Amino acid sequence: MLALILGLILFLGMHSVRLFAADWRVRQIDRLGLLTWKGIYSVVSLVGLILIIWGYGQARLSPEWLWLSPVWTRHLAALLTIPAFILLAAAYVPGTHIRARVGHPMLLGVKFWALAHLIANGTLADLLLFGGFLAWAVALFIVLRRRDRQTGITYPARGASRDLIAVVLGLVGFVVFALLLHWPLIGVRPFGG
């Protein structure tokens, strides 16, 4: 469990530096140079991600159950994961109405993903992993939306075709991940079997 916690601290911490320690970040970039900073950022994030994956896998070997979720929550989790994939795609398709409306679709997608998995999973490791990502995404979303309003940042939409592209990419991503990748990568079949 310690590896999971340390991984979450490293990964989510590095992904929060720009918002919660912006001055320190600027000083480090000035001192080290942008490329060195990006290298450190990438290495720390990768180490954090590896620790999260390894720590979560280890915790699943001897789970500490906090609650048992009914079977129907797996279906709800799958349903909630669909908008997560669409929002993730919208974060990378420029000019969507989705981005214009929510500002930071990837963080909203992380919230959907984390909430979906919290509903369907009830171990301490699940609470740490998905609860940690949910709390991080909520806090970051609030800070970024507030910053957007204060600085007048908007995200212009370029047409409905961009949203259609994001929706199609998101749906394809969901189907591929749920049916082909979730089992080999995570060890769980979202739709049973």
Rank of each mutant, 00 (worst) to 15 (best):
S161K: 13
L115Q: 00
L179Y: 14
K111H: 00
R99M: 07
L140P: 00
Q150Y: 07
Y155W: 15
F141S: 14
T151C: 11
V172G: 07
G109P: 05
S161A: 13
A114K: 00
L108K: 00
R149V: 11
A139Q: 11
K111D: 02
W136S: 12
F177T: 12
R146T: 15
L144Q: 15
P105R: 00
V176H: 09
M106R: 05
V143M: 11
D163C: 08
A125Q: 09
F133K: 11
L127R: 04
L128I: 10
L164D: 04
V143P: 03
F133A: 03
M106C: 00
G103T: 03
L179A: 14
G173F: 10
L107R: 01
L134E: 10
L134G: 04
I98S: 02
A100L: 00
R101E: 00
S161P: 01
W113S: 02
V110D: 00
A160T: 09
L134W: 13
L140Y: 05
R145Y: 13
H104L: 02
I98A: 00
A166F: 08
V167Q: 06
R101A: 08
L179M: 13
L171I: 10
F133E: 11
V110W: 02
S161E: 14
L179E: 15
G159E: 06
L115F: 08
L127T: 13
D126R: 02
A116R: 00
A116K: 02
L171F: 11
A114H: 01
P156R: 08
F112I: 00
V168H: 08
A125M: 05
A178F: 10
G159P: 12
D148T: 11
A125R: 02
N121I: 02
A100R: 13
L144A: 07
R101M: 10
G173I: 09
A135Y: 07
L128K: 04
A166S: 10
G170D: 06
T123F: 04
P105N: 01
G122S: 05
V176C: 06
Y155Q: 11
V176A: 14
P156C: 06
R147A: 15
A120T: 03
A135Q: 04
G152I: 15
L164Y: 09
H117R: 06
I142P: 05
R162C: 09
H97R: 13
V102M: 02
R99D: 03
P105A: 01
